[in-house]
Each structure stands twice: as structure tokens, then as C-alpha cells.
Nucleic acid binder design. Structure first.
Lengths: 343, 343
DNA sequence: CTGAAAGCGCTTACAG
DNA sequence: CTGAAAGCGCTTACAG
């Protein structure tokens, strides 16, 4: 655990400079010397020390990844895609889970800066983050994934849910739904806001009312989806369809609906967001707005690599898909207004 | 991005030694000097360089985590728990996804050693891994999670599925099942082997036959679960119950059963392994053997920290729970042998 | 092609 | 309490 270039040099009878050159594969070193060095390294069991190299070269080959909630399958898949792509470009990734807390995000940001990551990939948590602004000011290459911070000029890679949401509403209306509720994200969340606004716009386009009581605010966690669904179901005139804007809240809603003995798709329609593998395995399979998660991850890395290389990078807005399955009912909706396309 | 201790020292009018002491909070530095240093650091926007510090102290405050498949929810949750616990102890984690490939595991192992991680947490992939043995020989503190390598004397933190599997078989038998199939893990997998053996033993204890055709080998991935279920269902005399030994294969089996229009719990019973959040949301909710995943993660980190500190650590074997829900049917099993406890 | 030497940014004995 | 100096393990101009 302690053999250094100096040891190898001594053993091979050459200078440390030659050792370095030979081992790094650089040219400008004779074949015989190279062979001797390699043999010596082998014999001594030499293990390069990247921290020394990093100090000297100021390259760490590491990028930082800060995710707000690794347990959320969406972010899990995202992290996985990012890890994969990063390695493709020769970067290791230091992973931190901000857990949706600004203080944790800031602490990790400091930590990553101190470790001299070459770039930063993050899904910023909501709220003011001094460390984030500091990092940006310092000029560390960085790109946001999935969430933008409007006040910051940082490239962002995310998916635009609007067209798909509009299609979803059309789908629901086609099935005879008029009283459609939404379980939205936190008010301050740009993503949540965008989805809610898109939903509102689509409802208006179909001349459908969206009373206050049908708009519920959650926090992207399962429990808030459950609570929101409960409130919705307790209404004097409950909605015939519920649209939740992320996977976890969708799950919560499904759970609450089930708990009450209601059947999804017939008693109440459910549409979700994101598309973890088991959505299609639910009974009935869930209709949902799907984001190109792993594409986002790959693209985010590519964008970051570009930022590291050129000092600047462009944002990318991907498309979402509406995946129609059976959870919005395909036939008899109780209050069907004759518009149903079902049998 | 380039202010160093030397700059701070100059600005504060003291030596770099004092700067280092003041900033690290060490004692042996006067209050006035400390205050001046802190002010100077602040004024200059000093950002400590951990790679230099690491080189000097030979401490990197980093541990490596190698997971065989981050997309698998079991490992996702495990990684999340590990990341959390590691930070609690002041360690950052470098995450690598071996994707069940020895070569990738070995490459990442080299990389982590070069980066001088202070410890290694990994779920070893199957197959010979020269780098793993090399690392062990070198004495890098390490602990295995979830999977042991019988030939290596490395502490392992995992859960013992045997008692829960025995209870599961009892549960199935109580429900009238006799023809019970198993979708096992790869033959070389100790974990898979343990679960299969436990299942065999339990079957024998109930004097139940387990013909070859009812034992199917998968690879812990969803697709293999699907294929295994298909083969099982195609049998002249298909099983009345299927037990899959991980979450992904369980999902695959569920999907195949559904695809054929069969109802889980009534047409065919399904029992799974692991307990991702949506198992309880399936229709019917899935009966499963649940591992204490996040406990495993935390304990693995504690064990590693101990290994780093003392140079040795003990293995830990946790218990699994049998979570009984409705997927094994609670009533009428077609071929019920009169043993059914249902109504 | 090869080597002597400096230096990356810290921390830590060692003196005083 | 404070500083001068060495050194962690590399790489890279700079000479030759």
C-alpha cells in the first residue's frame, strides 16, 4: 500500500520522470525503458495514487451528483443513467442525496467543491441556496437536471410535460370525464407549476371547469398523494378522474382509492406521471405521462462534459410521452356525458 | 478558484501553518490570529482543497460502493441507506454500478483503489474477480453486503431468508397448495442457492414433492422471471403457486401470469422476495419475504467504519420477515386437498 | 530519449 | 502561541 513512483524508478534504475511517462503511456520514452518500468511496477505491485496525480494535474476525473431523493424511482433511474454515462466519459461520480433539504444540498455542494469535482450535476431543491449561487459564481461547470432555477443561467436538461398533459386531458375527456382533479406539486416548484398550468390550460381548452377544490397540492411524496386523494374522495361531489403529477403521489393516490374499496378505472380514473416499471403491472395498468429518464441522464452528462470542455453548454428540453393504458376506464363512466368512445 | 492557504497567510500576515491550524479548528493558535485568519479566508473567498489535504494526510474521507444493479429497487434502496449512513460518519461515497459484470467490477475496484478510498462496500458479482482478491490481499478495509464470497474472509452484512422461507411454505401449505414452483437465482449465487435450499428443505418438511420441472433458474432480472413463469404455466400440470426469489423476477412472473388472463391469488398464487413499496399496491397485494434493506445499509456502513478503525470487523446476519398479503389466495384453491383454511 | 528539479496545496513535526 | 521547512506522490516544463 505504499509503493510509489520513486520505488519503481529505483527498482528499474531510471528516473521518476521516466516512470511517469512509461506508465501513463505517453510517448517520449524508449521501448526498453518502458518495458523495464512496466516490469518493475508489476514486480513491486505498484498502485498509482490518483490523489497525488489530481493535485498535480488539477484534474480529478470526478463529477458530483446531487439528487433530491434517491428512493424516488425516477431519480434512482436518473442517477443510474448518469453514473453509466459519466463512466463512459472517464468520470467517476460522487453521489449525494439532498433529501429535498437546502441545507443538505449546500453542505454537499461545499464538500464537492472542496473535493474539486470537475463538474456538477444536480436537481436543485426548492428554496434559496447560497452555496449554489456561490458555486455558479465561481464558475464550476454545472448543469441542472429535471428542474431549472429560473433566476440562474445554468444549462438545464429536462422534459417538457405540457404537450403530453394536453393529450392526457383530451384522452380523459374522450372517455367522458369532466370532473377531473389534479394532485399538483409544491407551489414553488417550477416543474410542478408547469404541469399544473398545462393541466389548467388543457381543461380550459375543453371548456371544463377546474374548481379550487379539485386542485390539491402535494410534495411529490407518496403520503401527500394519499392525503390529497382522501380529500378529493371526501368531497360532496368527488372527481371522476384524478391526475397526479409524479410517480410517488400517484402511488399514494392509488393506495387511498384501493383502501376505500373503489376500483380504479371504473369507479375512479387515475392518471399518473413518470413510468416506473410496475405501473404497467398494476391492476389495471396505469395510464401515465412518461419522461425519457435515461435519455435525460445521458444527455445531462453529455451537456456537462461539453460545459467542462468548452466552458458553456446549451439547455435541452425533451418530450414526454402519454402512455395510455387502462386506468382511466375505457367504457362506462358513471356520469358519462355521451362523449364516451367506449363500447 | 485559486486562492490557497499561502494567499490567506499573506493577507492575514501569518504563516501558512497558522492558517492551517486556525481553519481546521485545531488548538494551539491564538484567538487574535485565528480571527484574522478567518476574516482573511472570508475576504478572499478561500475554498479548501481536499485533494491536497488528502495527499498530505492520506485520508480521503471517501468510501467506494459497488452495486451490481442500481436499477433494481432493492439495491437502489440499499445504496440510498448506505449513502445516508456514510455521510453520518463523514464519508462521501463514490458509486459504481457493476451491472453484474466481473470486468466492470474489477475496473471500478482498481479505480477506487487508485482514488484511495478508505474502505469498500460491495455486493460482489458472481465469478472470479482478480481485482477483488488483490484488494483483499492489500488489506483495504472492506465489507460485503447482501452477498458473501465463501472463499474470502471478508465480513458480510446480509439477511438470512431461511426461516421466513420456511414460514412461507407453511403458509402456502395451509392454504392448500401442494404443487409449488420456485423461480430460483443463478446456480452459482450463494444467496440464490441458500433460498432454493431453504425452499427445498421446507417442502420436504411438509412431505411435498418438488419435481425438477417446478424448479426454474432465473438471473434475478425481470425477464427471466417472465420466461420462467411462462414455462411453468405451459406445463401439463402447472403449479398452483409460484415463489420467486427476488423482486424483479417476481415482477416478471406477475406480468406473464397477467398476460395470460389468469388471476393472481385465485388462479395461481404468487409469493415474492424483497418488498418494494408497490408490492402492497398490486392487485392483489403481494405476499413476500421482506429483507430489512435500510437496516442492512446502515449496518454495513457501521461495520465498515469499524473495519477502518480497528482493522477487523464481524459479519452480521439479519432476519427476514414473511409479509402475508393476499396473493397466495385465502380461499378456494382449485385442487384444494381439503387442507384449506379458507372460508 | 532521459533526468534533475520544481511545484500542485496542504499539514505537521520540529524549533523557538 | 507561532513560523520555517519538509514532504505527501505525482507530472511537467526545462535542459541536455
Amino acid at each position: 500500500m505504499a509503493v510509489t513512483v520513486a520505488d519503481v524508478a529505483r527498482y528499474a534504475g531510471v528516473s521518476t520522470a521516466s516512470v511517469s511517462r512509461a506508465l501513463s503511456g505517453a510517448d517520449g520514452v524508449g521501448e526498453t525503458v518502458r518495458a523495464r518500468v512496466i516490469a518493475a511496477a508489476q514486480a513491486l505491485g505498484y498502485q498509482p495514487n490518483d490523489v497525488a496525480r489530481s493535485l498535480r494535474t488539477t484534474r480529478t476525473q470526478t463529477v458530483g451528483l446531487i439528487i433530491p431523493d434517491v428512493v424516488n424511482p425516477f431519480f434512482g433511474e436518473l442517477a443510474s443513467a448518469i453514473e453509466e454515462a459519466a463512466h463512459q466519459y472517464g468520470y467517476s461520480v460522487i453521489l449525494c442525496n439532498a433529501n429535498e433539504q437546502t441545507e443538505r444540498q449546500d453542505r454537499y455542494l461545499e464538500l464537492m467543491l472542496a473535493r474539486r469535482v470537475e463538474g456538477l450535476l444536480l436537481t436543485p431543491v426548492l428554496g434559496e441556496s447560497p452555496a449554489l449561487h456561490a458555486a455558479a459564481r465561481q464558475g464550476v461547470p454545472m448543469v441542472f437536471v429535471d428542474r431549472a432555477v429560473p433566476s440562474m443561467e445554468v444549462a438545464v436538461v429536462r422534459a417538457d410535460g405540457r404537450p403530453a398533459i394536453s393529450k392526457l386531458v383530451e384522452h380523459l375527456v374522450g372517455l367522458g370525464h369532466e370532473r377531473i382533479a389534479v394532485i399538483a406539486g409544491p407551489r414553488q416548484s417550477p416543474t410542478g407549476h408547469e404541469r399544473l398550468t398545462a393541466f389548467r390550460t388543457a381543461m380550459r381548452a375543453h371548456s371544463l371547469r377546474l374548481p379550487r377544490e379539485l386542485v390539491r397540492v402535494g410534495d411529490f411524496q407518496m403520503d401527500s398523494g394519499r392525503r390529497a386523494a382522501a380529500q378529493l374522495l371526501d368531497l360532496d361531489e368527488p372527481p371522476t378522474a384524478v391526475f397526479a403529477v409524479d410517480d410517488l403521489m400517484t402511488l399514494g393516490a392509488v393506495q387511498e382509492i384501493r383502501r376505500r374499496g373503489l376500483r380504479i378505472g371504473t369507479d375512479v380514473a387515475v392518471a399518473g406521471f413518470d413510468d416506473p416499471p410496475w405501473f404497467q403491472l398494476m391492476e389495471p395498468p396505469l395510464t401515465t405521462v412518461s419522461q425519457p429518464v435515461s435519455r435525460m441522464g445521458t444527455l445531462a452528462v453529455e451537456t456537462l462534459v461539453e460545459a467542462i470542455g468548452t466552458g458553456s453548454a446549451r439547455s435541452h428540453l425533451l418530450d414526454c410521452d402519454l402512455v395510455i393504458r387502462d386506468s382511466c376506464g375505457e367504457a362506462a363512466i358513471p356520469r358519462g356525458a355521451g362523449r364516451s368512445s367506449g363500447t
